[in-house]
Design a protein around this nucleic acid. Structure first.
Ligand SMILES: [Mn+2]
Ligand SMILES: [Mn+2]
Ligand SMILES: [Zn+2]
Ligand SMILES: [Zn+2]
Lengths: 136, 136
DNA sequence: TTTCTTTTGCAACAACGTTGCTTTTTTATA
DNA sequence: TATAAAAAAGCAACGTTGTTGCAAAAGAAA
């Protein structure tokens, strides 16, 4: 199984919830919010388990967070070479205002930003809102 | 008073809470989250009033939202020519990872993003995380 | 001042998120 | 495979955040 080896490779024990949640990310196209996962998982798992699983996956560099202006963080698989404590997700994100899907645009790299004197840049997040290819 | 005329100009009645909250934005340097306002206002106002006031200000184009990956939207004054239903905030934002201040970098315009075929861009949000001029 | 309109505060509620602890599952090892 | 140790899941309880309806208070208009 794809999920099992991915979990093992990251030093995580293989459990039903982790397999199921990872599966959702692997098969789905867009990013998932906590609530999406609760629904899609078929209410098999405790809410707390979902919270803890997402946190574990983020810590291990399996998934990354996507900021939003509606107080619901979304999560998506890291396709870059992320590892424990070291995320390297340098792609931008796209939120469709019609179907509300959030996409990782893995091929669109984060632009260079010229900051005013005194500011030191770390990570740059870009979220583009618009209409996706399925909705126009 | 600066607050009174700003409120009137936007067709809003001048009330204690609106004046106080607007004041906080005018005198402060960084962006404010809902919680910051509750604290800074000196627990004078009901939580609900703060929510409704922020929503009203956003609707009128007085303040804009700043996305985040920590489930706490921040708000800042619009310095561009925003109006009811028409925000034109094309600047980027900076979050200091040390003091956790969020700045509007009004002079740094949002970059142009080349999207894959099929995606139509609307608004672009850029949030840079790093160390601010006061913290380095 | 009086009247009408808008906003506030309150109460109740729902959704979201966290923590400690017990039970269950997984892993490692004999 | 059986057993012991370690890790994760589930449960309960709780705190925080955000929403709604409604009555009281404040503001605008005249
Ligand atoms: Mn992504
Ligand atoms: Mn801004
Ligand atoms: Zn779409
Ligand atoms: Zn700082």
């Amino acid at each position: 199984m794809q999920t099992d080896s991915l979990l093992k490779r990251n030093g995580l024990s293989v459990t039903e919830s982790r397999k199921k949640i990872l599966q959702l990310f692997l098969e789905g196209s867009g990013a998932l919010a906590h609530g999406d996962i609760e629904k899609k998982a078929g209410e098999k798992f405790d809410r707390v388990t979902v919270y803890r699983t997402l946190q574990t996956f983020v810590d291990k560099g399996i998934i990354h967070t996507i900021p939003s202006a509606d107080n619901s963080i979304r999560y998506a698989l890291c396709k870059d070479e992320c590892s424990e404590g070291h995320h390297h997700d340098h792609h931008i994100h796209f939120e469709c205002s019609i179907c509300h899907t959030t996409y990782c645009l893995d091929d669109v790299v984060t632009p260079q930003i010229n900051l005013p004197k005194g500011y030191v840049a770390g990570h740059v997040e870009v979220v583009v809102e618009g209409v996706c290819k399925n909705c126009k």
